[in-house]
């Protein structure tokens, strides 16, 4: 796998930081290294939050990056803010119902109906888990078991439905209707 720089950004309440910490935890629990830095918009309410995560097979020298290999954006505002920062040949995963993508050359852009899927599961706020499952299956970031362990280590309430949401994301990435 080498080293992957992942930027997850969305509205406050979308579970951005939890998603980032699950990948980070999954990475270290499976013997890899990981680091996460977080940033928020200045607004106290209605602002965005951002998790920058690096996962690596080797020890990470420098925890900060400007250009992600993979961008996950759950709102139009955060998509617009970050889409031009993605590296060439990089990936963008965006929330299908909230983001209208722009044409950006040299990057791959993939929609995900994360909220729609989570609402069908009866637990709207598990959309972040749907995205995690989708991104990890699509990009093969970490082994499936490692991610499940990461979720178990981080999610304190409603673990079952969160795992189910994650697995729905995995199925979406495989082109299967969950």
């Amino acid at each position: 796998m080498g080293e992957l720089k992942l930027r997850i950004i969305g509205a406050g309440g979308h579970g951005i930081l939890l998603a980032g910490s699950i990948i980070g935890t999954a990475s270290i629990l499976s013997g890899r290294d990981a680091v996460m830095t977080v940033a928020y918009s200045p607004a106290q309410r209605g602002g965005w939050s951002r998790a920058d995560v690096i996962v690596s097979d080797e020890r990470i020298d420098f925890p900060i990056f400007d250009n992600p290999d993979v961008l996950i954006a759950t709102t139009q505002e955060t998509y617009d803010l970050e889409v031009d920062n993605v590296v060439q040949e990089g990936y963008v995963i965006y929330e299908k119902d909230l983001v209208t993508p722009r044409n950006v050359p040299y990057i791959k852009q993939v929609p995900i109906p994360a909220f729609e899927t989570a609402i069908k599961l009866g637990f709207r706020i598990s959309a972040n888990m749907v995205i995690l499952g989708f991104a990890n299956e699509l990009l093969k970031i970490l082994p499936h078991d490692a991610m499940i362990n990461g979720i178990k280590a981080r999610v304190k309430r409603k673990l079952d439905i969160n795992v189910k949401a994650y697995e729905s994301g995995v199925m979406l990435a495989r082109g299967v209707e969950p």
């Binding site: 910490s21 270290i28 290294d33 990981a34 680091v35 996460m36 830095t37 925890p63």
Partner: peptide
């Protein structure tokens, strides 16, 4: 601030 607020192993 960076070392204090970053999350790492």
């Amino acid at each position: 601030q960076r070392v204090g607020q970053m999350i790492e192993k």
